[in-house]
C-alpha cells in the first residue's frame, strides 16, 4: 500500500531523482530514432549512456535539451515538466550540455565564452548597456570576475584573452564544459567528452569531471565510447541499441551483460 503514495521523484533508496524521463519516443518520418527510453538519474550521480553508432544517444540529448520535441513521452527535472520547452528555457531551468562536435563561440575570447554562459545571472538591461549607466560597469566587472573564477577551476585562466578558436583541441573541450557549468545547471549533459582525445587528455578530463562533481555537487549524464572512461567513472549505465534500451543498471553488471557484448562486438 505504501507504494501507491510513493513520490515518483524519490528513488527507492530515498535519494532525489533529478532527471526522470518517461517513455521518450521520437519518430522521423517512418524511423523511430528513440523508442520508449526511460531514465531516472539520482542527485549527484554520474550516469552513462552508451551504445553502438546510430543507437540514438545524441538524439536523447537533443530531446532532453529541447532541440527536438518528443513525439510522445515526457521528461522532468527535479519534478518539473520540461517537455516541449525551448532550448534556452530548458537551459535556464537547469540542464546544460556540451556537443559531440565542439561548438564554441570561436571569435569570442575564452573569458567571453564563459561570460555568455553566465547569461542573465547579473542583471543589466539593454537600456543600461546602451547608455552606459553605472550598473553596466558594475555588471561587467562582476561578469569578468565570475568568469575568471570558473576558468581557474578548469585551469584555463591563462588563456582568458585568447580567441576560443585558437585553443588546442583538449582545451576547447574543457572550455565547452566550463561554459556549460557557467549556466549554473543542476544536470550536465556531456556528449562524448573524450572523443578525439589522447590517453593523457582523457585522463585529465576524467580528473576534471570528478573534480567538478565534488566541487559543485552536480549530476552528470554522459555519452561515451571510450570504455576505459565509462568503466572508470560512471556509476550507472543505460545501453541503447537501435533506439531502444538494451540494458540498464550499475556499470559492472551492464558491461558484462552478454546482450551488450553482442551489440558491440557482434556474434
Amino acid at each position: 500500500m505504501a507504494d501507491l503514495k510513493k513520490n515518483p521523484f524519490v528513488a527507492e533508496d530515498g535519494r532525489e531523482i533529478v532527471l526522470k524521463a518517461d517513455h521518450l519516443c521520437i519518430q522521423f518520418g517512418g524511423l523511430k530514432a528513440v523508442d520508449d527510453v526511460n531514465l531516472s538519474i539520482r542527485r549527484g550521480e554520474l550516469y552513462g549512456l552508451i551504445g553502438p553508432n546510430g543507437a540514438g544517444k545524441t538524439t536523447v540529448f537533443n530531446l532532453l535539451t529541447g532541440v527536438y520535441k518528443p513525439t510522445s513521452g515526457r521528461f522532468f527535472l527535479c519534478g518539473k515538466d520540461l517537455t516541449g520547452k525551448a532550448p534556452a528555457e530548458i537551459n535556464r531551468c537547469g540542464i546544460a550540455r556540451t556537443f559531440q562536435n565542439i561548438r564554441l563561440f570561436g571569435n569570442l575570447t575564452v573569458a567571453e565564452n564563459v561570460m555568455v554562459g553566465l547569461g542573465n545571472q547579473i542583471p543589466c538591461s539593454l537600456f543600461e548597456s546602451m547608455f552606459r549607466l553605472p550598473r553596466h560597469f558594475k555588471a561587467e566587472a562582476e561578469y569578468r570576475k565570475k568568469a575568471m573564477e570558473l576558468l581557474e577551476v578548469f585551469h584555463l585562466a591563462e588563456y582568458a584573452d585568447h580567441l576560443a578558436q585558437n585553443l588546442p583541441y583538449g582545451k576547447q573541450r574543457k572550455l565547452e564544459i566550463a561554459r556549460a557549468m557557467a549556466t549554473n545547471p543542476t544536470l550536465l549533459l556531456l556528449d562524448e567528452p573524450a572523443a578525439g582525445m589522447n590517453p593523457n587528455e582523457t585522463q585529465e578530463l576524467m580528473d576534471v569531471i570528478s573534480f567538478i562533481r565534488q566541487r559543485f555537487g552536480i549530476t552528470i549524464l554522459l555519452i561515451e565510447h571510450d570504455m576505459r572512461l565509462v568503466s572508470g567513472i560512471c556509476e550507472q549505465l543505460t545501453v541503447l541499441n537501435f533506439g531502444t534500451e538494451l540494458a540498464k543498471g550499475d556499470t559492472a553488471s551492464v558491461l558484462n551483460d552478454p546482450n551488450v557484448i553482442k551489440a558491440y562486438i557482434g556474434e
Binding site: 534556452a88 555568455v116 543589466c124
Partner: peptide, 25 residues
C-alpha cells in the same frame, strides 16, 4: 556600447554558433 556589453556578447554568440547560443540560455 551595445556591442561591448553582455548583450553584444550574446549577439556575437548567435553569429558564431546559434545552436550553442540557445543551449547556453
Amino acid at each position: 556600447n551595445l556591442i561591448r556589453s553582455k548583450h553584444g556578447r550574446a549577439i556575437a554568440s548567435i553569429r558564431d554558433n546559434e545552436i550553442a547560443a540557445r543551449a547556453s540560455g
